[in-house]
């Protein structure tokens, strides 16, 4: 099962990013583990330096911006 992490210290942009990812996962009925991580330790470990960020299976795929739903679908391999 894929593990999707949405990373950010809890600002509005991070919440918006989580909402976008959640929406995509739910509408596609995807079986994934979706977590929101607000710890700086995790961001440092992943090498993420701009928030919001998204990591799939421990690999940063989005950093420092709110992605659009289409991009998230593409990243998760739904098209």
């Amino acid at each position: 099962m894929q593990r999707i992490e949405v990373l950010g210290p809890g600002c509005t942009r991070c919440k918006e990013t989580y909402r976008v990812v959640q929406h995509v996962v739910e509408t596609a009925g995807l079986q994934v583990e979706l977590v929101k991580d607000e710890s700086y330790e995790r961001m440092a470990a992943l090498g993420l330096m701009a928030t919001p960020g998204i990591a799939i299976d421990g690999k940063v795929v989005v950093s420092g911006r709110i992605p659009k739903a289409e991009e998230v679908r593409h990243l998760l391999g739904i098209s």
Binding site: P9, G10, C11, R13, C14, Y40, A44, M49, A50, T51
Partner: peptide, 15 residues
């Protein structure tokens, strides 16, 4: 460089 104040801490640690 893109910067918003909520990125200040992860950026600081990263650097």
């Amino acid at each position: 460089t893109p910067f918003c104040s909520c990125s200040a801490v992860p950026l600081f640690i990263g650097f």
